[in-house]
């Protein structure tokens, strides 16, 4: 029986983490895994810190990924990677968008956005794969494709074949945005070292 793997997808409400978890869930389903995905819903989550759990293996019980359990964290924003760091398993990996989005306490001057946050995570001995997914998404044609760029970055760190990913993207995104999303996916993949 293969061990259950846990992925945490974190970001800022409105960045498209739900589509990302749906893509990953469907790709894992195509591979024949038992999959559970747990989501946060509702408009008023926007702008807030959001988290989605994805778990897969032969048989998954709990849909939750808890402290010290994530094999991989996919973070849509730098500060969120730091916030959810305690969820990472020892030896786990973080894939992160270097984009910074100021939370309200930083906007209003009540707090400061920590400097060099990703280096501080690396200094804790954690493997961090990073790229500016916002710039890559713009390059692909829309800032809204950040989520698919990040899926491309993630793809190299899973055992899912590229074709399965491409098919999943095709089945999940609206046809008129397909080319843009496929480009975003390729750019993400190219930006992520193995």
């Amino acid at each position: 029986m293969s061990k259950v793997k846990s992925v945490l997808i974190v970001g800022v409400g409105g960045q498209g983490t739900l589509l990302a978890s749906r893509l990953l869930g469907n790709a894992l389903l195509s591979k024949g895994y038992d999959v559970k995905v747990s989501e946060v819903h509702g408009m008023s989550q926007r702008g807030g810190s959001v988290v989605t759990y994805v778990r897969y293996g032969d048989k998954v019980a709990s849909p939750i990924v808890d402290l010290g359990e994530a094999d991989l964290i996919l973070s849509f924003e730098a500060l969120e990677a730091a916030r959810f760091l305690p969820y990472l398993k020892k030896g786990g990996k973080i894939i992160v968008n270097t984009q910074q989005i100021d939370p309200m306490p930083v906007v209003t001057g009540k707090a400061e956005y920590p400097e060099n946050i990703l280096d501080k995570i690396r200094n804790k001995g954690v493997e961090v794969v990073s790229a500016n997914a916002l710039e890559l998404a713009e390059q692909a044609g829309s800032v809204k494709a950040v989520n698919v760029v990040l899926m491309g970055m993630l793809a190299k760190h899973t055992d899912i074949e590229k074709q399965v990913w491409l098919d999943t993207v095709r089945d999940t995104v609206p046809p008129k945005f397909l080319d843009l999303n496929l480009k975003a996916f390729e750019l993400g993949m190219a930006a992520s070292p193995q």
Binding site: G48, P86, K110, V126
Partner: peptide
């Protein structure tokens, strides 16, 4: 108890906001 890695500094909270 779970084994965890933490940074040594405070992470500013990110509450939901009006869009």
């Amino acid at each position: 108890k779970a084994e965890t890695v933490c940074l040594d500094e405070d992470i500013p909270v990110r509450p939901p906001v009006m869009c």
